[in-house]
Write a protein that binds this DNA or RNA. Structure first.
Ligand SMILES: [Zn+2]
Ligand SMILES: [Zn+2]
Ligand SMILES: [Zn+2]
Ligand SMILES: [Zn+2]
Lengths: 138, 138
DNA sequence: GTCATAATGAGAATCATTGTCAATTGCGGT
DNA sequence: ACCGCAATTGACAATGATTCTCATTATGAC
């Protein structure tokens, strides 16, 4: 069930830099994280940022969501061990981990009713946060 | 709240062809619908298929979902007037309209609790349907 | 039929993401 | 500390879905 083929990741300075940058919090695209890293003096390559974020995403250390525009956003996840969902502001990108009661059970039940197995679900709540809403008032 | 700037779409033969093709049912990518149309003798352009499907999607006449690979899939929606969700087979693409009890209210409540407005949600259930699961058994 | 203009199609352009591959480097073994 | 080599990196090419451009065509109101 778990991977005996687990390749332990090397601690390179680029990996460390990404990990460090992620501490700033917030959802950003791979390119945005890359920009941020370069502005901080790193000469890390874009492909490396992509690779590192993907690796971290697969290992469950970062969350990823997809915007309407098809961009994938990443951020360090505070609670890697628990499956959860997000409420994200479409304007400023601020996001919070949320719990949607019964969702897991309900989706499992619906899947079962239709004879589906290996159920997965994608749930994303988006909106405009109060501070962005305030700014929008001219 | 509604659009006084509603441009009524012209009934061109390509729009009719797309509408006709959609009757075959099922989720397909724009490119896939385009292939299908060409195989049926149409000389419709790919860009037109994209434009038409997007227009139909915005007017609520077709559903669209995004695959893991980032492709957008479209299909004629049976129940355009009601907001609903889908349970889709990741193997064969078969999909059914489903109802997730209380989801609308729960998401609205969660949004409100966090001070968010203009809430929207994306919910997609995927799995492997019974017939695909059967085939998977060697 | 005329006409304004929405719609089309071929191909170029975008843009996020992935692949290539030679050069580099972490790190286990010595 | 020193080797050796596979994992990792970075510059850049390549991809692949989607969008844009613009000259040409065709819809629908009058
Ligand atoms: Zn999270
Ligand atoms: Zn905001
Ligand atoms: Zn539907
Ligand atoms: Zn199936």
């Amino acid at each position: 069930m778990n991977d005996a083929t687990a390749p332990r990741p090397r601690m390179t300075k680029q990996r460390a830099a990404v990990l460090d940058a992620l501490d700033q919090g917030g959802f950003r695209s791979a390119q945005s994280w890359h920009d941020l890293l370069r502005h901080d003096g790193s000469n890390i390559g874009l492909a490396t940022v992509y690779r590192t974020l993907q690796a971290l995403s697969e290992s469950g250390d970062v969350d990823s969501v997809v915007t309407e525009g098809g961009e994938t956003l990443y951020r360090r996840c505070e609670t890697p061990e628990v499956h959860h969902h997000h409420l994200r502001c479409r304007v400023c990108g601020a996001a919070e981990d949320i719990d949607i009661p019964d969702l897991e059970e309900v989706s499992a039940r619906i899947g079962a009713e239709h004879g589906f197995i290996e159920l997965e679900h994608v749930v994303e709540l988006t909106g405009v946060c109060s501070s962005c809403a305030a700014k929008a008032q001219h």
